[in-house]
């Protein structure tokens, strides 16, 4: 029942998002017809032609209804700039950003959770300070700066990794990993820091609980108590945080993809905004919103799986 009602909420949310995107777009300065005309903008006939062709001469509600009508029929429109269908563009980009996102998230978990556990267990010790310092550094380093530094070090100076570009997983797994490992690290790094701090906090409060003391008193090994008893409980807030951080991941992808020339969602939406390619912006935002909602739903399900006490709620 919970699940169906959650699923039903998706529809009004998407409608709201689509209206918001449509309205916000109208507030953007810069006439799309002038931008699309490029250096041909001098000719008023050209501008007029673009307006008529793209329905820009109609009122905004009419444009919106026209677009929604098409979306309901599965037609997201086509890019004003390249004439490629938006659905095709999204199908091209979605696997790219997904791969980057999954890799970044794995990197974040692989760094953040163990670091948090170590910091908590060795509270106020040297490892705690080191983990905190590294975490703070990860949070304060801007994405694009770290990206460029890594390119200069790992690609230009050491020649270990390609500086930019993207090879799909289906084409060549190792080359695909070689092209995405740097951007995934840049993206994952900031999230790792947040995960570390939350895991540390959650672990600290769990380690003070009576049942942990009991487990230790029963003679269980320290490692077993930390990993089996404490971490499992401490992970619950971390999962929720992870789902929320997916938003950070998507917005971070905008900058990271730009720096590494990765042809994903982020790069597409930036280019589309600067070129006032509205159908692409609308399509991407709609699909991103849908993804975000679904992933949060997934996080809620995971939450229940990890913590059986929530199952009846």
């Amino acid at each position: 029942m919970k699940l169906t009602s959650r699923l039903a909420q998706i529809v009004p949310t998407l409608i709201l998002v689509s209206i918001l995107v449509f309205c916000l777009q109208q507030l953007m300065p810069g006439d799309p017809a002038v931008v699309l005309a490029g250096e041909e903008r001098g000719d008023p006939r050209v501008i007029e032609q673009i307006r008529t062709e793209l329905w820009l001469d109609r009122s905004i509600p009419v444009q919106y209804v026209h677009w929604v009508g098409n979306v309901l029929q599965g037609n997201l429109g086509y890019s004003w700039r390249t004439r490629q269908p938006v659905a095709e563009l999204i199908a091209q980009k979605l696997p790219v950003t997904s791969q980057l996102g999954v890799m970044a998230f794995l990197i974040a978990v692989a760094i953040g959770v163990p670091a948090g556990v170590i910091a908590a267990v060795k509270r106020n010790g040297i490892w705690d300070y080191i983990a905190n310092a590294v975490g703070l550094a990860g949070l304060s380093m801007p994405n694009f700066w770290l990206g460029i530094m890594l390119i200069l070090l790992l690609s230009v100076d050491l020649g270990w990794l390609p500086p930019s570009g993207y090879v799909p997983l289906t084409e060549d797994v190792t080359r695909s990993l070689a092209t995405t490992i740097m951007p995934a690290f840049v993206l994952g790094n900031a999230i790792a820091a947040i995960l570390m701090r939350h895991t540390r906090g959650a672990m600290l409060s769990t380690l003070d609980q009576d049942y942990i003391r009991t487990a230790r008193a029963k003679g269980l090994s320290r490692l077993r108590v930390i990993l089996r008893h404490a971490l499992r409980n401490a992970l619950i807030p971390v999962v929720t945080l992870g789902a929320l951080e997916l938003g950070t991941l998507l917005s971070g992808a905008v900058l990271t993809e730009q720096v590494f020339s990765i042809p994903g969602f982020g790069k597409m939406v930036v280019d589309a905004v600067f070129n006032r390619d509205y159908p692409v912006v609308q399509g991407v935002v709609l699909v991103t919103a849908l993804l975000f909602i679904l992933l949060n739903l997934l996080a809620d399900i995971l939450y229940v799986l990890i913590n059986p006490r929530l199952r009846r709620a």
């Binding site: 460029i148 690609s155 390609p162 930019s164 020339s261």
Partner: peptide
């Protein structure tokens, strides 16, 4: 043909021969 808007990335790609 590959689009590369960032000048640092462009130079890095030239230097690595990509």
């Amino acid at each position: 043909y590959q689009p590369m808007p960032d000048s640092t990335v462009l130079v890095a790609n030239l230097k690595t021969g990509t």
